[in-house]
């Protein structure tokens, strides 16, 4: 099985989403669970939610309702956005019961 990335693959827009040379496993089986995490969806964002730590009541509603599992619990119990994966849908902003989340346009 070829393990080297061909020139065409290197130039392909899709293969850029996958770091390192493409390995063609037998039967296209993927043996690395959760490997989509190599692909950062954070650059999809138009809007950027920001959690104001002082206002956060640690209810976890933002965490529970994120379709991208892009909100993490911090060591002090408050929640923080993982900007590597946050796509900026703003469900969290909409649902925060104490308005601890605000948003602005993503600066690129």
């Amino acid at each position: 099985m070829k393990k080297q990335k061909t020139k065409e693959q290197a130039q392909s827009g899709i293969s850029k989403t996958c770091p390192g040379p493409m390995v063609f496993s037998k039967g296209a089986v993927i043996s690395e669970p959760g490997s989509t995490m190599k692909y950062k969806t954070g650059n999809w964002r138009t809007y950027k939610p920001v959690i104001e730590r002082a206002k956060c009541i640690k209810c976890g509603i933002c965490w529970a309702n994120c379709p991208d599992a892009a909100i993490k619990k911090d060591s002090d119990g408050t929640f923080i956005v993982d900007y590597d994966y946050c796509k900026g849908c703003l469900i969290c902003d909409k649902l925060c019961p104490v308005k601890a989340i605000s948003h602005g346009v993503e600066q690129k």
């Binding site: 693959q9 063609f24 296209a28 089986v29 993927i30 043996s31």
Partner: peptide, 23 residues
């Protein structure tokens, strides 16, 4: 390779034009 909860693997992934040909 087989479906095994102690070694989770994915079968039947989407192959884009950058891999379908090789399979």
């Amino acid at each position: 390779n087989f479906l095994d909860t102690s070694d989770p693997k994915t079968f039947g992934a989407v192959a884009f034009p950058n891999s379908f040909f090789e399979f």
